[in-house]
Design a binder for these strands. Sequence first.
RNA 1: GGAGAGGUGGCUGAGCGGUCGAAAGCGGCGGUCUUGAAAACCGUUGAGGGUUUAUCCCCUCCCAGGGUUCGAAUCCCUGCUUCUCCGCCA
Length: 422
Amino acid sequence: MLDPRLFRADLEFVTEQLNRRSFNFDSESYSELEAKRKAIQVKTQELQNERNSRSKAIGQAKARGEDVQPLLDQVQYLGDQLKATEAELSDIQSIMTALMEGIPNILDETVPVGKNEESNVEISRWGDKPEFAFEPKDHVDLGSNKGMSFELGAKIASARFVVLNGMLARLQRAIIQLMLDTHVSEHGYNETYVPFLVNADSLRGTGQLPKFEADLFKVNNDPTLYLIPTAEVPVTNIVRDVIIDAKDLPLKFVCHSPCFRSEAGAYGRDVRGMIRQHQFEKVEIVQIVKPDESRKAHEELTGHAEIILQKLKLPYRKVLLCAGDTGFSSAKTYDLEVWLPGQQAYREISSCSNFKDFQARRLQARWRNPETGKPELVHTLNGSGLAAGRTLIAVMENYQDADGNIQIPEALLPYMGGVTIL
RNA sequence: GGAGAGGUGGCUGAGCGGUCGAAAGCGGCGGUCUUGAAAACCGUUGAGGGUUUAUCCCCUCCCAGGGUUCGAAUCCCUGCUUCUCCGCCA
């Protein structure tokens, strides 16, 4: 959520900024609402003040043993009037909250203009694309005789689920292990285990609700719970309603979890293979930092995700998302895109975002600034480090040979129990 | 799933329906004392919002949501949650 004070102070600036990401903000009807809110709030508070002081007077008169009946008669009319204005105020407040919760974050000034992913800016490339003396297969073909079964996934659950058997399942586990170990031992993250079902408050805190409910899976027999679309939700919500000691910042969490997405808006896309599933594994890294450190933390965190790709010697590129492609809650996002020989394309494998105080305001996640002595909002960041399912297919496709075997990358050997080739 | 006891400020913990945003202690901050520190003593110390140049002033918040009342931290209802015991269970 954006700072309501910003709207009052400089509505034009806000409108302009939101236009950058093609969000059409109707500042005129906002102003009307805001004026109405102010008037009703002032009126309500005046009435409340009157009630309070009169009630106090009644108490004092009673204490002196006076007859309070005349005073009671005077105050009779207040009740209904107050109840009515309070209801009016609460109505307009919930209208405004709903409005504010639907407004996306203001973009960082370094975010390039553009409507969609075609305007994203490539920042760097790493690694050499493998050259094959044969036509490289995609992971679906490579996996068909190695325990990857979409048929079983569909039988057991539905389309967009997969079953991994034997060494492929182990390979995915090895990938997850490598990521966790690297982030914990080399990057100083704190390993966390969290609920995979979360309540609406948590989803509102990180920005998935109220706007993106269609992307979530809900729990049938408990309508208060949702399956997590990413560990970002439970992990970032650790600091909801918390005032953090300055000396404890930055907080750095790493968390492996399954992720569940209904992919409501993507029915026709990536129907083949493991690219886009209803359930996938991911290792998520999250940082909670002081506001003036988030810029640096964002670069750092993105670098932490890159290290994994480098350890696996997977060619990738780093892309700065343009205005139109940057997510709702994010101020700035880098995507890491891994090279997939089976598709002859770079595909997203990590998304690293700086949310600045957007999530923190919804979460009421604050720190005590020693300079002011006051609680102030923190900045939150997160990134996939990495999506494990997509890493698995990247390994399969980049490490294939002419016979359809898969070499195990060196970095994963310690986790593979002596197996070097699948 | 059943029975019982709780949820109050950074923490511990008081609080006959009226002057309670809330005693006391701890912690924090400022000061006195000291070469310095500790101890002791004095003072100060919640959050959000409205109005305002600023101060003043005002409103809201004692788990959450309803209700009773002129007036609710205090009474009633519902929910959530923590703890203890029983049952079930990986």
